[in-house]
Design a protein around this nucleic acid. Structure first.
Lengths: 237, 237
DNA sequence: CATCGTAGGCTTACGGCGTAAGGTCCATCA
DNA sequence: TGATGGACCTTACGCCGTAAGCCTACGATG
C-alpha cells in the first residue's frame, strides 16, 4: 500500500498500467516464495502481500491458484531453456548428446529448486498435455525431435520419448527424496533416524540408508539414460 | 450422529471401544473417498462425515492430515503386498523375475488407483525414509535384497536400487499423465485438445499426441527395467 | 484542457479448511 | 458401586480460495 506516486507509472515492460503488477512479477514473487519457504507456504494472499497488493489483484495475471502453480512450472522450464541457451552449443549431429544435454539441464534446475519438484509430478497429472505451458511443450518437442532424428521409426520414437520422460522425472524425484529425519543430530545414523527402522524387518535398507542419502549425481542419470536409449535403438549394439 | 445403541458395542477387532472407529476403518474410508472423488476432495471433515463422526475424532487414528495421507500410502503398499502374495509364487533363484514381479504389482496397483499417484511422488519427498510406513519399507527391502542376491556388490546394488525405484515411479507418473482435454468430444484430436497446440512450434509433439495418449503397458515397463538392470550387472553382456 | 471508457487494483463476503484446547460420556474393573 | 480413563464431541480460531462488484487513475480522444 506504499504510495509510490513519485514514480509517474512509466510503463516499463515489466509493470502494468499502474506500474505495480505484471504476470512476470507475480510469477517471480511466487517462485521466490516457494524457493524460500516451500510449496505449502504458497498462498494467493502471501504472494499478494509481498507485492503490496490484495489477493484478488493477482487474478488478472493468474486466474486462480492452479493457474499460479502452472505458472511456476512455466518459470521452471524457462530456467531450463535458459540453462540450455547460454551453456553449451548443440552438436547438431549427435542426437544422444542433445538428449543428455536437455536431461542434464532439467536435473540441474530441479536440484536448484528442490521445493518445486512436487509440481513436476503433480501438474503433469492434473493438466492435459495440450494445455501445458509453452516452455514445457517446447522442451518436450525438442526431446521428441531429437529421437526422431536418431533414425527410430515414429512408434519407437514415441516409446523412447516416454522412457526418457519417465526416467528423468523418476530420477529427480528419487534423488530429492527425503532422507534426513533430524538435521541437528551429530551422528549420521541418528540424522537419518535409523533408530526408528527395525533391524529385523528391514536390515538391508537400514544398512544401505547411508549410501542412499547421497545424491545420485549426473553420472548415474546419464548412465541410466544411455541404457534406456540403447534398448530402443537396435543399431546401437 | 445416528445413535446405534442397539449394538452394545461389541469390541470386534475392527472397531474402537464404542464400536465406531478404528484406524483401518478411517483409512479405508479416506482411501475410498479419494478413489471416488480425487485427492483434492479429501478433507478431515468429509472423511469424518462419512463415518458419522466429527473431524476431531479422527485424530486419535491419524494425527493430522499429513498422517492421513501417509496412511493412504500405507494402504496402497498393503495392496501391493496382497497382489504379490496371492498372485504368483516367487521363483527363488531368478532375482530378475522377482524384481519384475514387484515392479509389475506396483504398476498395476497404481493403475487401479490413479487418484493416489500424486501421493507416491509427494510423500516420498515429504517424509524421511526412516518414517515411512512399514509396508513401504518392506517392499523396498525386498527390492534391495533381490539386487544384493544378484551378485552385485553393495555399492552397485544401491545404484541399481535407485534406478529401479526411479524408473518405476517415473513410469507410473508418465503413464498416468493427463492427456484428455475434453472427454465429451467425439473426435480424438479434439478430445486431446490438439487445436490448442501450435502446429508451428510443436509439430512433432502434436503428431505424437495420439500415440502418447495410450498407456505404456506392462511390456514397456519391463523392457525399460531390463535395460536398466543390464547396465548395472556387467555379467549380463 | 475536458471528457470518457476501461484496465487495474480494491473491498467485502462466504464457505470450507486444519487443528488447538478442553469437555463429556460410558465401558471397564476394582 | 464408584472411580478411572479412553473414545468421541464441542467450540473456536485463523487461515485459505475465490465470487461479485466497486472505484479510480490512466491513455486516448476531441
Amino acid at each position: 500500500m506504499t504510495n509510490r506516486s513519485a514514480e509517474p507509472a512509466r510503463r516499463t515492460g515489466d509493470r502494468g498500467r499502474y506500474g505495480r503488477l505484471s504476470r512476470s512479477r507475480v510469477l517471480k514473487t511466487a517462485f521466490d516464495l516457494v524457493d524460500r519457504e516451500g510449496l505449502s507456504a504458497l498462498s494467493m494472499r502471501k504472494v499478494a502481500a509481498e507485492l503490496d497488493v490484495e489477493a484478488m489483484s493477482l487474478y488478472r495475471y493468474a486466474n486462480g491458484k492452479d493457474a499460479l502453480l502452472d505458472g511456476l512450472v512455466e518459470v521452471l522450464y524457462e530456467h531450463i531453456e535458459q540453462e540450455l541457451a547460454h551453456c553449451a552449443p548443440p552438436p547438431a549431429t549427435d542426437w544422444q548428446a542433445g538428449l543428455q544435454r536437455i536431461v542434464r539441464a532439467t536435473y540441474q534446475v530441479a536440484l536448484s529448486h528442490p521445493q518445486m519438484a512436487p509440481l513436476l509430478a503433480t501438474r503433469i497429472l492434473a493438466v492435459p498435455m495440450a494445455r501445458r505451458p509453452q516452455a514445457v511443450l517446447r522442451t518436450h518437442e525438442q526431446v521428441l525431435t531429437l529421437l526422431e532424428q536418431s533414425g527410430l521409426d515414429r512408434q519407437s520414437a514415441v516409446h523412447a520419448y516416454r522412457a526418457v520422460t519417465a526416467w528423468t522425472l523418476g530420477f529427480i524425484l528419487t534423488d530429492l527424496q527425503a532422507m534426513v529425519d533430524d538435521p541437528t543430530a551429530p551422528e549420521i545414523g541418528f540424522r537419518l533416524g535409523l533408530q526408528h527402522m527395525s533391524a529385523q524387518e528391514t536390515p538391508a535398507l537400514r544398512t544401505a540408508a547411508e549410501r542412499l542419502a547421497e545424491p545420485g549425481g549426473t553420472l548415474a542419470l546419464e548412465t541410466g539414460l544411455a541404457a534406456l536409449l540403447a534398448s530402443y535403438s537396435p543399431t546401437d549394439r
